[in-house]
Design a protein around this nucleic acid. Structure first.
Lengths: 260, 260
DNA sequence: TCCACGCATTGACCTGAATCAAATTCTGCA
DNA sequence: TGCAGAATTTGATTCAGGTCAATGCGTGGA
């Protein structure tokens, strides 16, 4: 069921067929949310992991005075929280941007699966690593780039991530975000986002119409953004196999020929 | 040896005496760095975890044009990288702010320790969780707060974290940061940082002299910063024991009476 | 088909923060 | 003790981006 997740994890480390089956069987139930619904509230004690199957969501934080900061985008294959600790007190909220379908996996089931299969454990670790890298990149993006660079950078990231899970054509994808959302992501006012987008359009770097984003010349946008996508795909299966002396217990799972 | 680490982890989940011993024995060697040295370079393939024993360091990212963003501060007890995947390609650099002593633990040793002791595994997971929470908070800090709030927030966080590892008196601690460092942390120019600091001093919210930071009225600074420290200490040992039905394999380790 | 509401766009103006440049004060060191 | 380089401070000026306010446009629902 969680095909995007499996695809993503497999793309990282390589998952044996067994591991893929295990993951599929872990899913307890599937839930739907319509657009603009809070899926998880800050402060909630979460006992399962929700895997996005379809649709888009975001994680955000909010101050009492209403200011809001989007701290993450969640695409199919992404997890709504860390898969290691249960229950976890979540300190951000998750909200659907479109209608969303999620698969729920009991925390305890994930933990046991990780106990049983080192391949699965490794896959989730790597995924967590990548999530952390994205968060660091976001901090840097907001902290040191200009408005134009920030937005360009965000668009590069979104496009790259969607491509990785097969949700973008070569050069375009849907972008179900309002300009206000974008502003709350990169720390700019709505009005300014509007102007920057126009500028990017005028420069021929993007097309954005009816929630459809097109990046005709990715290299151009990347350089306008100072975007270096390497933080998005930590996985180095080759490097791993070559250099990592895996401990005994891991050897079996790692030896799977699933690496493509 | 890594007393601060053990203290921190124990404070989170509770570590059995055995686990504490194990961690101590894991340390392979200790390294020294003088101030302002790059300890890990972006792009390096890291095979060990470095635990800060003494001193302060920071993680940062840099663009080709020289702009720099500090993405993390590392205090005694903190890890310089994620303890799950080896080798890891690090996508930020780590640099000492003062002279620093670090303990190095082989990645494989950590992994086996986690395999053998669920308590240790859990401890590192929680620590990773907390690190991620801090990173999210930083994104939000830079993205949505005003200059004054940002700096106040940073100071609140630093003080709170240092207190947690016993490195701050009730209301003061050392702050071995230049105003330029602070600027690169919160996305402001040095000059502006200077002015804000003066403002905070004038408001009686802080004293900062000769690298010594004092916060006479923490509640006041906290409210100026909209600081809510709950993201810093995820751990809910009580909650955990009460609600989390630990899987069989974990039961033994979790049953340790080490919770204080 | 039409209406209403949310979103995008535009313009005028303001302000927080950056930049530039020059003191002044520390601090480590000889 | 004195000196050099670094860090802090100050002032003047500029500018990126915010705010306010109005208008235009698209879309989904009745």
């Amino acid at each position: 069921m969680p095909q995007h997740l499996i695809r993503k994890l497999d793309h990282c480390v390589g998952l044996s067929g067994d591991d893929q089956d295990t993951l599929t069987r872990l899913v307890r139930d599937v839930a739907w949310f319509s657009a603009d619904r809070d899926m998880i509230d800050e402060g909630a004690a979460v006992r399962q992991v929700s895997v996005i199957l379809e649709g888009r969501a975001c994680g955000y934080k909010q101050l009492e005075d209403g200011r809001r900061q989007i701290v993450a985008y969640l695409f199919p294959g992404d997890l709504c929280s860390t898969p290691f600790v249960f229950p976890t007190i979540i300190n951000y909220s998750v909200r659907s941007l479109t209608s969303v379908r999620v698969a729920r996996i009991e925390g305890q089931d994930i933990l046991s699966a990780m106990q049983r299969s080192a391949g699965i454990a490794r896959a989730f670790w790597l995924d967590t690593l990548a999530t952390a890298a994205i968060q660091r990149e976001w901090t840097a993006n907001v902290g040191l780039r200009t408005a134009r660079e920030r937005i360009a950078h965000l668009l590069c990231e979104i496009m790259t991530r969607l491509r990785a899970v097969g949700l973008a054509d070569r050069d375009s994808c849907t972008l179900p975000l309002t300009q206000e959302d974008i502003g709350e992501t990169v720390g700019l006012s709505t009005v300014h986002v509007n102007r920057i987008l126009q500028d990017l359009r005028a420069s021929g770097l993007i097309t954005l119409k009816r929630q459809q984003l097109t990046i005709p010349d990715f290299a151009a946008l990347r350089s306008a953004a100072h975007f270096d996508g390497s933080y998005l795909c930590h996985p180095r299966p080759d490097l791993d196999r070559k250099y990592a002396p895996v401990p005994q217990q891991f050897a079996t799972a790692m030896a799977s020929p699933a690496l493509s």
